[in-house]
């Protein structure tokens, strides 16, 4: 379970943060391509940091919940604007 959290949940959370970052920057007026390139490059560092955290967190259940919460929050910020017809 710990390994799954490190590999997959941390990736899902990083992915969601990238999505949220891209959406935010585009709303902030940045070019789409610039927003994506910047966020995706930083996304790898975010993933590594999250993976290290997932390996180090003392208790598993709060860790999994936190990663799931980040994933849900990031996805919401990332995709809601386009669903609501914005951006």
């Amino acid at each position: 379970m710990r390994v799954l959290a490190i590999v997959f949940l941390a990736y899902a959370a990083a992915s969601a943060i990238v999505a949220a970052g891209v959406a935010t920057l585009i709303l902030g007026g940045l070019d789409r391509s610039d927003a994506f390139t910047a966020c995706s490059i930083l996304g790898f560092l975010v993933y590594v940091v999250l993976a290290l955290w997932a390996a180090a967190a003392p208790r598993l259940v709060p860790l999994v919940l936190a990663l799931l919460a980040i994933t849900a929050g990031g996805t919401a910020i990332g995709f809601l604007p386009s669903l609501m017809g914005g951006a």
Partner: peptide, 29 residues
Amino acid sequence: GVTILASVYFPSGVWVAFDGGRSGYVKDT
């Protein structure tokens, strides 16, 4: 090495930013 294929590894960002998915990404970028 991983950043070369950023658009493959982070499809989430591609979906958010580009209407045409990856082809939209290539065309814009």
